[in-house]
């Protein structure tokens, strides 16, 4: 592989990382809202949230992407394919992250909140100082896992025409007749990025280890 083509691949990998990070961040925000709705005592909030999670976890991402890509223009929103792809990825990861967060929030032992109640903390203070920090710590491993899944899943946005790492490899494989080389290179780059994410995740977990549930 010539240095110029390798540089092209590296840039494409950077694009893949950027889109994945954006999707994870947006998905975390939406996921928090969906999680809050799912934990709400009001059925009219819980119901749509449950439906949202079930749909976006039950339909293949590829079908979701095709659906959003074709639906947006019909709704009068002519957006570039990368925006449609980002919306699709974000909604999908939001559904998974909402479930992870729900797991975290429901795993905070009741007694810790009772102790906060006895210490006079208001419900909002209990949430902000005790429940949320513990729940988020419990969610870190799942979040790292989700980041790796989304990084791999982002390869599917190549199908709706976003020129990220997989699409770049596809283009170069077709024009150079060297599919083995370029698809292996793409695989190697995904592997390297995932390894970095996993390493970052275990460093974070180690940093939080002292504050784990006893």
């Amino acid at each position: 592989m010539s240095p110029r083509l390798f540089e092209l691949m590296l840039k494409a990998a950077g694009y893949t990382v950027a889109i994945s990070v954006a999707a994870i961040a947006i998905g975390l925000l939406i996921g928090l809202l969906v999680c809050a709705a799912k934990l709400s005592p009001r059925p009219w909030l819980r119901w749509p949230a449950t439906l949202f999670v079930s749909f976006f976890r039950g339909v293949p991402l590829l079908v979701q992407l095709l659906l959003i890509y074709n639906l947006l223009p019909v709704l009068g929103l002519a957006v570039p394919s990368v925006v449609a792809a980002l919306i699709g990825l974000s909604l999908c990861t939001a559904a998974y992250q909402a479930e992870n967060l729900r797991g975290g929030f429901t795993s905070v032992p009741r007694g810790l909140l009772e102790a906060a109640d006895m210490a006079g903390l208001s419900p909002w203070q209990q949430f902000r100082r005790i429940r949320a920090p513990i729940a988020l710590r419990l969610t870190v491993p799942a979040l790292v896992n989700e980041a790796i899944l989304i990084l791999k899943a982002s390869s599917l946005i190549s199908v709706v025409g976003v020129v990220e790492l997989t699409r770049t490899a596809q283009n170069l494989a077709a024009s150079t007749y060297e599919p083995l080389l370029f698809y292996s290179a793409a695989g190697g780059l995904y592997l390297a990025i995932n390894w970095l994410v996993a390493a970052g995740g275990s460093l974070t977990e180690r940093a939080l280890r002292r504050g784990r549930l006893a």
């Binding site: 032992p109 007694g111 009772e114 102790a115 006895m118 513990i134 710590r137 504050g211 784990r212 006893a214």
Partner: peptide, 12 residues
Amino acid sequence: GMVFQQFNLWPH
């Protein structure tokens, strides 16, 4: 003030 069986210290 209350002291619990499970201590309920905040782990973080």
